[in-house]
């Protein structure tokens, strides 16, 4: 069992979460070419080592989190609230 330290709920079994994928910068939909947009959708670094990922606490607070996870050992060294949610989240709700 892998314990995921949800920044809102604390340590929980990874089965409560949905793995969304490695975090990548999203191009501006208004200006991105189809190739750029497809690259954003499909191309992955797929690192064997430390990776920054987005997870979703599906069976918990139903909020997104950013995780630093080692993809070979599954060690987790940091879980943070995604930048867009940090202002309003404040640990409550």
């Amino acid at each position: 069992m892998i314990l995921v330290p949800c920044p809102w709920c604390g340590s929980r079994n990874s089965q409560e979460f949905r793995y969304v994928g490695e975090s990548r910068a999203r191009p501006d939909p208004a200006t991105a070419t189809p190739e750029e947009w497809r690259s954003y959708l499909y191309v992955k670094t797929n690192a064997a080592g430390w990776a920054t990922e987005t997870w979703f606490h599906r069976n918990g607070c139903r909020r997104y989190l950013t995780l630093e996870r080692h993809t070979v050992t599954n060690e987790i060294r940091g879980a943070t609230k995604p930048a867009a949610q940090r202002r309003t989240a404040g640990g409550g709700a």
Binding site: E22, V72, T73, N74
Partner: peptide
């Protein structure tokens, strides 16, 4: 259900 290079089994 998540990306990994680990080949350990799980309960």
């Amino acid at each position: 259900p998540y990306a990994s290079y680990s080949m350990r089994g799980s309960l």
